[in-house]
């Protein structure tokens, strides 16, 4: 692991039943940089992120966070390490039973035992950073549009000012304008916090906007890795096919015949 890698994965392998999802992933996320992992649906992107967070345990391999092997963490060490993380889920994953501000303040109140009034002030401030007024804080998540829910989820991810933020398909399901708004918010929030970020997406516009580095995952392996500016000249047929969205190429869609 290089000294400036915040997160490193070494030979991470995971299978569900007979299906191999991660087939020896090797990847480093440099400290303070934004790495975007691109790849088609079902290539193992979400599983990879969940392995780093400890939500899924890989069969073998090493996951290093700040140089410490996350696979050997005790429950309390894992809980402590998770305080460094913020996560934006694909479907926002807001808690239905709580108001918007309580969602944003959740990690502060439950995870860090902060006083509710103080946590509410921070939550309203973070909602302001993502362009939502204090009146939105009193609403229920079900009263918000998809784009607003993503913004609330982003506010929740940055509320505790984490060192590492994961974005799981941050723009999926949004119209192009709202997607760009979310991309801008991600960029500005991350720059402000100086956080290390790992994003997974198949939205190339989003990847180009928020990435310092891009890696491509295919069939559970990282098949290309480089600076974001190099992605158009990768010399990799798989990457070329993916970023141009071509049906023809080395990546064959598995279509079930009738």
């Amino acid at each position: 692991m290089s000294n400036d890698a915040k997160i490193a994965l070494r030979g991470v392998y995971k299978q569900f039943g007979k299906k191999v999802v991660l087939d020896g992933i090797d990847l480093e996320v440099p400290r303070g940089k934004s790495l975007v992992v691109i790849g088609g649906s079902g290539t193992g992107k979400s599983v990879m992120i969940k392995c780093v967070l400890g939500l899924i345990r890989p069969e073998r391999g090493e996951i290093l966070i700040d140089g410490q092997d996350a696979m050997k963490f005790s429950a309390s060490e894992r809980e402590e390490t998770l305080r460094k993380f913020g996560m934006l889920f694909q479907g926002s994953a807001l808690f239905d039973s709580l108001k918007v501000w309580e969602n944003v303040a959740f990690g502060l109140i439950q995870g860090r035992r902060m006083d509710r009034d103080q946590a509410k002030q921070i939550a309203l401030d973070k909602l302001g950073q993502v362009g939502l007024g204090p009146e939105v804080g009193e609403l229920s998540p079900s009263e918000l549009s998809g784009g607003m829910q993503k913004r609330v989820a982003l506010a929740r991810a940055i509320a505790a000012e984490p060192e590492i933020i994961f974005f799981d398909e941050p723009t999926t399901g949004l119209d192009p304008i709202m997607a760009d708004v979310i991309n801008n918010l991600i960029k500005s929030c991350v720059q402000k916090l100086g956080a290390t970020t790992l994003s997974i997406t198949h939205d190339m516009a989003s990847a180009r906007k928020i990435a310092d580095y891009i890696a491509m995952i295919y069939k559970g392996k990282i098949i290309w890795h480089g600076a974001a500016a190099e992605v158009d000249h990768s010399g990799n047929d798989y990457v070329d096919q993916f970023i141009h969205g071509r049906a023809d190429g080395p990546i064959k869609m598995e279509v079930l015949k009738p």
Partner: peptide
């Protein structure tokens, strides 16, 4: 139904990432 919905919408994963043990909560 409530916890199942939280499971399939990743709310339980979200609890974990917010340093909150789902069993305790």
């Amino acid at each position: 139904a409530e916890i199942g919905t939280m499971r399939v919408t990743e709310q339980i994963d979200a609890l974990t990432t917010l340093s909150t043990n789902p069993f305790k909560y």
